[in-house]
Design a protein around this nucleic acid. Structure first.
Length: 831
RNA sequence: GCCGGAGUGGCGGAACGGUAGACGCAGGGGAUUUAAAAUCCCUCGCCGAAAGGCAUGCGGGUUCGAAUCCCGCCUCCGGCACCA
């Protein structure tokens, strides 16, 4: 046997670390402000340093990286940073279990994860890394808190707040999930606690947050946010107290059906409503007090179970229905929630099912005031449920006869003219509770002074550092409160003895602005360098999981708008385009978890196949936005593909050299190769733009197959082959950066492939010169003809009608019509 | 209950209203090999010997032509839910 030149093996284990090191040394992925080039800010959600990198991290980061690389090769100056969301409860909980300091646990995890992320071969600019638990970072989280405070957007109030007894801290409304109200983090049933807490005024931005017109975000996220904000249009109506209480303030209700006012036969207050005491008569006092006490003791789960039978008690007090002038009784009932609307409703039992049930149970009047469309007037005694359909107003004074299509508007005008009410909008959204009674977070930078009240810590004293020597075990009190000295400070205003706020901030505050700190992570004069901001912001593409739809993704929009109003940021939205990746489930189609033992460890995959294969497979194995159960066999396909590319290009180069520039392949083969090359450029470009990574890979696989056929036909050595090589490696570079780089160098194509520009598709080269013309009879495929691409209509129709398939199926029929779709088909309509 | 999203081969999935199932996995057959791995070639929706027929959750409709558009259902996933 003769000694052949053997193609070396594809060995990612050596070439990947080699290139990673080279790129780092050269600073290949440093992104700096460069006004000459268009910027592109590609952001991916920052990970929590939980210790071990999960395949889900790879799924979030590597396709995002590929897309950032694509933008870079297209000529943009791309910023693709990463950091760590390193404050938070898991660090504290882990630290408690292992008896090490949260900082130590977090630092170790970040080190480990940094190494793992580096193995992905991303274009992350590590100079811009941030960690939210860094004093250099949280100094500015605190500074931003103070700006919100000064701007009236942060405030303190005493309220019943959601409390997780396991995490021993308060939770934001968004962190309470499910029908039975569990802690978003640990799943424990949430209870209520009365506490004085810090809030951010998210509700002030409710209306603006509903407007998505300036951003390209997925429909799914937009609806989740829209539902979460929960806008209701209706009216506020004031009911003046009657009898003994007539000198007290009117009771205001919110209703979406002001047009049913004439049917309001009683009023219901939430047990917590401030007017309860004034409206309660002496003889009802004991019963009312007992009911209020009972409601307070009940858990929210019990109270808010919709299927529970309604209970309530009469207060003995009355108010005047402003429409009818009649006195109607006032009740209290726990189906009216203190936190929504005004905490009081007008009950219209004839037209609201809840009120109907309540009225039937307690024998209250049911008075129909809507005549159903095209039907008989309703009779209260015969009704079995509330009528909520369309119709016209009945027994409604001067508005009688108004159709329900305009009755809400006209009642609003009627009320406004009398000064007893007006149109109003209510939101479900609550203000964001940001205080946490835990150690591992950014301390709230205020001092409580007995003389001056709440005093902000002066800017030049920031950051308010976390003390290191603290008992961080949770007791329900903030650990900072238990520190012997930390909280004792002089009041910055009067110099008298004061006390630091001992709560820390919700970690969602940290992550609401991290994209700004990446711009200048070590900037000392503000949260970010304005010059960097002007160049890089807003974020062009934001990628991450959908689970943050009603948390982080609302908070960060709120934060940006609030900072805009404080003159700190510009523009209305922080992130222009959002795309969410799906979830990779375990092989058993269940959520991956250590306890189920179905966790896929990326390190093992990288060790076995190399990072490029893992990247390619993650982009290929499912629709990115959908996710799928992990399939261990599929990755072999991606590995095979990259190995084939390796041998194809190296053997192709050998054959090129052997040919001495005289390819054996004929013109047709070479033209076909060039056509496929340019078709692939167009396809891959379009699919990258749309985040359709799976078809990027399949297009590249197809081109490799075509190139494989072309070399078999002797295309190596031709100019078409050389073009194919160069294009292939550039299209591959975002997906498999190490392999593409290695081959780029082995083929001696020049400097780093990652500095090359994205190839451009030549439509002329991509055009087919022959097409398959489909012949249909009555819409069914009956024949296929190969014709020149520029075939004339007449020619196409004639040949189609003469085709065997067409003749066979039109025999004995009359041709009524012929539809011709150029380049595709001829449809013969015959009967 | 309300609001979204999704239903296409054994599997992941392709498909500007125009050849349904690209690309890949798994399966079947073969080549190479002492053997295996790796690699390469062929095959692969269902029924049918073939001609052909049937197929994109179900039922209608629009259209020359529907996975794609419209109407009505069913199932799964997610969110919200006594929100006045």
């Amino acid at each position: 046997m003769s000694q052949e030149t053997r193609t070396p093996d594809y060995d990612p284990a050596t070439l990947e670390p080699h290139w990673q090191q080279r790129w780092a040394e050269e600073g290949l992925y440093h992104s700096d402000v460069e006004s000459a080039r268009p910027k592109f800010y590609a952001l991916t959600m920052l990970p929590y340093p939980s210790g071990d990198l999960h395949i889900g991290h790879w799924y979030a980061v590597t396709p995002s990286d590929a897309r950032a690389r694509f933008e870079r090769m297209r000529g943009a100056n791309v910023l693709f940073p990463l950091g760590f969301d390193s404050f938070g409860l898991p660090a504290e909980n882990a630290a408690i279990q292992r008896n090490i300091h949260p900082r130590e646990w977090t630092t170790k995890n970040m080190e480990r994860m940094r190494g793992q992320i580096r193995s992905m071969g991303t274009m992350i600019d590590w100079r811009r890394e941030i960690a939210s638990s860094d004093p250099e970072y949280y100094r500015w989280t605190q500074w931003l808190f103070l700006q919100l405070l000064a701007g009236g957007l942060a405030y303190r109030k005493h309220a019943a707040v959601d409390w997780c007894p396991s995490c021993n801290t308060t939770l934001a409304r968004e962190q309470v999930v499910g029908e039975d109200r569990r802690c978003e983090r640990c799943g424990t049933l949430v209870t209520r606690k009365e506490l004085e807490q810090w809030f951010f005024r998210t509700t002030r931005y409710a209306e603006e947050l509903l407007d998505f017109s300036a951003i390209d975000w997925p429909e799914r996220v937009r609806t989740l946010q829209t539902n979460w904000i929960g806008r209701s249009e209706g009216a506020r109506i004031r009911f003046a107290p009657a009898g003994r209480a007539q000198d007290t303030e009117p009771v205001e209700v919110f209703t979406t059906r002001p047009d049913t006012l004439w049917g309001a036969t009683f009023l219901v207050l939430a047990p917590e409503h401030p007017a309860v005491a004034a409206l309660t008569s002496a003889e009802r006092r004991d019963e009312v007090t007992a009911y209020v006490e009972g409601a307070r003791r009940q858990s929210d789960v019990q109270r808010e179970a919709a299927d529970r039978e309604k209970t309530g008690v009469a207060t003995g007090g009355h108010v005047v229905n402003p429409a009818t002038g009649e006195q109607i009784p006032v009740w209290i009932a726990d189906y009216v929630l203190p936190g929504y609307g005004t905490g009081a409703i007008m009950a219209v039992p004839a037209h609201d099912q809840r009120d109907f049930e309540f009225a039937r149970k307690y024998g209250l009047e049911i008075r129909p005031v809507i005549r159903p469309a095209g039907g008989e007037a309703l009779a209260a005694a015969q009704m079995e449920e509330a009528y909520v359909g369309p119709g016209e107003l009945a027994d409604s004074g001067e508005l009688t006869g108004t159709p329900t299509t305009e009755s809400v508007r006209r009642t609003g005008e009627w009320l406004a003219a009398r000064g007893t009410g007006e149109s109003a909008v209510t939101y479900r959204l609550r203000d964001w509770l940001v205080s946490r009674q835990r150690y591992w977070g950014a301390p709230i930078p205020v001092v409580h002074c007995p003389a001056c009240g709440i005093v902000p810590v002066p800017e030049d004293e920031l950051p308010v550092r976390l003390p290191e020597d603290v008992e961080w075990r949770p007791t329900g009190e903030s650990p900072l409160k238990l520190h012997p000295t930390w909280r004792k400070v002089d009041c910055p205003r009067c110099g008298g003895p004061g006390e630091r706020d001992t709560d820390t901030m919700d970690t969602f505050v940290d992550s609401s602005w991290y994209h700004l700190r990446y711009l200048s992570p070590h900037y000392d004069d503000g949260p970010f360098d304005p010059a960097e901001y002007r160049y890089w912001m807003p974020v062009d593409t934001y990628t991450g999981g959908i689970e943050h739809a009603t948390m982080h993704l609302i908070y960060t929009r709120f934060f940006h708008k609030a900072l805009r109003d404080l003159g700190i940021t510009q523009g209305d939205e922080p992130m222009l385009r959002l795309r969410n990746q799906g979830i990779i489930l375990g092989e058993d189609s269940e959520k991956m978890s250590k306890s189920r033992g179905n966790v896929v460890a990326p390190d093992a995959l990288v060790a076995r196949y190399g990072a490029d294969t893992v990247r390619a497979y993650l982009m290929f194995f499912a629709r990115w936005e959908q996710g799928a159960p992990w399939s261990p066999d599929g990755i072999e396909g991606a590995a095979r593909w990259l190995r084939r590319v390796w041998t194809l290009l190296l053997e192709g180069r050998q054959a090129t050299q052997d040919s001495g520039g005289a390819p054996q392949a004929g013109e047709a083969t070479r033209r076909a190769l060039r056509r496929k090359v340019h078709q692939t450029i167009a396809q891959v470009t379009q699919d990258f733009e749309r985040f359709q990574f799976n078809t990027v890979i399949s297009a590249l696989m197809e081109l490799a197959n075509e190139m494989s056929r072309a070399t078999a036909d002797g295309a190596a050595g031709s100019s078409e082959w050389m073009e194919a090589e160069s294009v292939y490696l550039r299209l591959l570079a975002p997906v498999a950066p190490h392999l593409a780089e290695e081959l780029w160098h082995r083929l001696e194509l020049g400097d780093s492939v990652h500095r090359q520009s994205w190839p451009e598709a030549d439509p002329e080269a991509a055009a087919e010169d022959e097409i398959t013309l489909v012949v249909q009879v009555n819409g069914k495929v009956r024949d296929r003809l190969v014709v020149p691409a520029d075939v004339s209509r007449e020619e196409a129709e004639t040949r189609a009608r003469a085709s065997e398939g067409a003749r066979k199926f039109t025999e004995g029929l009359t041709v009524r019509k012929v539809v011709y779709v150029p380049g595709r088909l001829v449809n013969i309509v015959a009967t």
